[in-house]
């Protein structure tokens, strides 16, 4: 099943930022979002993840198929690496954490408390969380922040495994992931400042 976005208009702080966004993401493919700061990447990703409503347009193939990861990883400092992963595995009803530990070389850290990890190690754990959700569509906001080159390679490998297994991913990132992926420059969807799309501040103009 593909992720399909049609004529999507989204707002941030009551003002439309992107209008007419459309793309189709078939299974097994990744889509990299590009655009300057403040263009609306995070807003678009949060909309895909169902965390905020769109002003108009359709998203199909999202909802319960999305696994979302942003700057905050949802990790508890006072739980060990395994406990953190196990918790999310149980919430998503998968229970399988071994593959996730291996994919990001977390096994040596398995018994460490998440609070004692470095920023990059925490990020790896946060990305490993995606694997235990068992969800096919990853929606990732700057996933490689604070990762070193080795960890970026682990991420790229995990992503390719995920795609090969029929998954897909929408990623906002500035770095090169080391393999070919479609890119979407969202600056081209920038909403005109005169656009009236039903945003909450419009009634007052």
């Amino acid at each position: 099943m593909e992720l399909r976005v049609d004529n999507l208009t989204i707002a941030r702080g009551g003002v439309p930022v992107l209008a007419g966004v459309h793309f189709v993401l078939p299974a097994g493919r990744a889509l990299v979002l590009r655009g300057p700061n403040g263009a609306g990447k995070t807003t678009l990703l949060r909309t895909l993840a169902g965390l905020q409503p769109a002003l108009s347009g359709q998203i199909s193939g999202a909802g319960e198929r999305i696994a979302y990861a942003a700057h905050a990883d949802g990790l508890k400092a006072m739980l060990s690496v395994t406990e953190n992963l196990q918790f999310w595995a149980e919430i998503f009803g998968t229970r399988e954490t071994d593959a996730a530990l291996d994919a990001y070389a977390l096994r040596p850290l398995a018994e460490r408390m998440a609070g004692t990890l470095s920023a990059g190690q925490k990020r790896r754990l946060g990305l490993a969380r995606l694997l235990v959700t068992g969800r096919p569509v990853w929606v990732l906001d700057e996933p490689t922040v604070s990762l070193d080159t080795a960890a970026v390679a682990q991420f790229a490998a995990a992503l390719q495994t995920h795609l090969a297994a029929g998954g897909s991913a929408v990623i906002a990132t500035h770095i090169d992931l080391g393999f070919k992926a479609a890119t979407l420059d969202i600056a081209s969807f920038r909403a005109a400042s005169t656009l009236l799309a039903g945003a909450s501040d419009e009634a007052f103009l």
Binding site: A49, G50, L51, I66, Y68, A70, A72, I91, F92
Partner: peptide, 14 residues
């Protein structure tokens, strides 16, 4: 809320 758990729980199947 601070560590992002709530955002992830909203998308979780519970």
């Amino acid at each position: 809320f601070e560590d992002g758990t709530l955002d992830l729980l909203v998308g979780a199947p519970i």
